[in-house]
């Protein structure tokens, strides 16, 4: 069964906003990268497409600099990359972002699986995936660790609160993907060249996808960030018990759980 998988990704900023600059950071190619939490979603999509056949499309909304994160998804193996980039979408909160992405998903045509990273490294809300599934009126599984096609439906395992939950889902469905879900993606140099030397990222405006601008950008955003200040960090000391190997394994798990390593 050939699958049509869409993975929503985000170009995130590496640096925290400075208080002197207010709450926004100018995004440049140097300070923007593909959201690390989106990589497992892309890896899972590529594994599924490799095993079952089909196409993987990556989709993003953001300023033109987001193009490079999408190029990276092409280098990693995505078949198609689409960026919705429009000044009228600037300042979108998660709700407005979700509306644009949902509209773009419908614009892309029939799909089987819609994947999201578990969260983003620069805003950490984890809201867009669940909201998109609600807008699209499709089932959603959070923190999926595996998706296995099974006689026309999909067995989706989810890692939540220390439990492994199993769901049976009919396509089309949406899921956010657990950071540990898929093996790490390596990228061949030739793939980087092909992705970055070509003009394969499709850049569309709100009008191109038929999106009413009143529901996007600051105008369409019900939430406002009033202020942003660094939160105080409390130092915590934890002792890890056991032999050297067990301690190393436990430490590795803690680092993974913190989302610092996949």
């Amino acid at each position: 069964m050939a699958l049509n998988i869409i993975v929503c990704v985000k170009s995130v900023v590496l640096e925290a906003p400075s208080a002197a600059l207010g709450s926004s950071v100018e995004r440049t190619p140097r300070n923007s990268v593909l959201n690390p939490f989106d990589r497992p979603a892309l890896a899972l999509a590529l594994e599924l497409a490799k095993e079952e056949g089909g196409l993987v499309t990556t989709l993003s909304m953001g300023p033109p600099v987001s193009c490079w994160a999408l190029c990276e998804t092409l280098a990693l193996g995505a078949d198609r990359a689409v960026l919705i980039s429009d000044k009228k979408a600037a300042g979108s909160d998660t709700m407005a972002t979700t509306r644009v992405l949902a509209k773009a998903v419908n614009w892309l045509g029939p799909w089987d699986i819609l994947l999201f990273g578990s969260r983003t490294a620069d805003s950490d809300t984890g809201q867009v995936g669940p909201q998109a599934s609600a807008l699209l009126n499709k089932p959603f599984v959070g923190m999926a660790s595996s998706i296995i096609p099974k006689e026309g439906i999909f067995l989706v395992e989810s890692l939540t609160d220390g439990f492994v939950e199993q769901y049976l889902a009919n396509a089309p469905f949406a899921a956010s993907v657990h950071p540990n879900a898929a093996s790490v993606l390596d990228c061949a140099l030739a793939s980087i060249r092909q992705a970055f030397d070509s003009d394969r990222v499709e850049v569309l405006t709100l009008a191109d996808i038929g999106m009413d601008e009143a529901f996007a950008g600051e105008k369409g955003s019900p939430t406002r960030v009033i202020s942003m200040t660094p939160a105080p960090k409390a130092k915590k000391c934890a002792f890890i018990e056991g032999g050297a190997n067990e301690q190393a394994q436990a430490l590795l798990e803690k680092i993974r759980d913190a989302g610092l390593l996949f």
Partner: peptide, 17 residues
């Protein structure tokens, strides 16, 4: 170029891992 940044980032990830 952006391609070179990607090469650096992706090769570094491989080397670190």
């Amino acid at each position: 170029s952006e391609k070179h940044h990607a090469v650096k980032r992706l090769v570094r990830a491989f080397c670190e891992r």
